[in-house]
Design a protein around this nucleic acid. Structure first.
Length: 262
DNA sequence: TTTCATGTTCAGCA
DNA sequence: GTGCTGAACATGAA
């Protein structure tokens, strides 16, 4: 479920497990996941390099490889990293970085929708891709300025990575549920005080999710996340949750509590 | 068997 | 440029 909280959890995990390690070799089991680089190039670029720092922007994770640039990892819908001794896991990873000393970083991704690349400069990458500010860094003024004039729905605006980076389908629903705002509300019709509520909700929801290590079981019981399924009920008022399609994705909301205005 | 799924990207259309 | 829809990517789960 790689949205911002998941990727931030991955980042912290990798920070504690692979920094300082030296790359021995790289194995690409699913070459289609590479972007703008071949397996051979990636291997020769990374071999002998020491991992120095980690960075995250939105749903992108970067590992700095000393003198070689940054290894970019995007987890798509089903990707996740795992560090351990070679071959410790039953599943076959799509990508693996072996380190001197015997450990390796494996990238699992059933659906192969994840992406792997090597970039020279993270900030340049963010500019080129026109990614918006990271959802955990954005301040109230910037948030309001970037969102309140958008067309379409508030939910689509929250999920637009060019507007604000890191929020996906699940957390967009969660943020709007907590803010009690209807996901289909038009951004231009939302009052400033309601935008404030959305902003505060965004901070609370993301902060709590990161603190919980993005584990649904460790999120507040009043969260929508654990109820987003057929026959799911609103954890606050008990009414049946409704669904609709917004921005091409299934949207869960409580029709009784989430209003179009206010 | 069919439908749906947490993400991104592109084509086609308004 | 903005936004929407549908498709593609590739695979598992309900």
């Amino acid at each position: 479920m790689p949205e911002l909280p998941d990727v931030e959890t991955f980042r912290r995990y990798l920070k504690s497990r692979v920094l300082g390690k030296v790359v021995e070799r790289v194995e690409v089991l699913a070459p289609a996941m590479l972007r703008d680089i071949s397996t051979e190039q990636l291997h020769s670029q990374l071999r002998g390099s020491r991992l120095r720092t980690t960075r995250r922007h939105g749903k992108y994770l970067f590992l700095e490889c000393e003198d070689r640039g940054w290894l970019l990892l995007h987890f798509g819908m089903t990707g996740y990293p795992q560090v351990g001794r070679h071959g410790a896991s039953r599943d076959e990873p799509r990508f693996r970085v072996r380190f001197l000393g015997g450990e390796s970083l494996a990238f699992f991704d059933r659906r192969k929708l994840g992406r792997i690349a090597l970039v020279r400069d993270v900030d340049a990458f963010i500019r080129t891709r026109k990614l918006g500010p990271d959802a955990l860094d954005i301040g109230w003024r910037t948030f309001h300025a970037r969102l309140h004039r958008k067309r379409g729905s508030v939910k689509a605006a929250l999920m637009d990575q060019h507007t604000i980076a890191g929020i996906g389908n699940v957390y967009a629903d969660e943020i709007l549920f907590r803010a009690r705002l209807h996901p289909a509300a038009e951004p231009t019709a939302v009052t400033v005080s309601t935008w404030r509520r959305v902003y505060r909700s965004l901070r609370t929801v993301l902060d709590q999710a990161v603190a919980a290590g993005a584990a649904p079981s460790r999120l507040p019981r009043t969260s929508l996340l654990s109820n987003r399924h057929k026959n799911g009920r609103c954890p606050r008022c008990g009414s049946r949750l409704r669904t609709m399609r917004l921005g091409g994705r299934t949207t869960y909301y409580c029709a009784r509590e989430q209003r179009t205005r206010t």
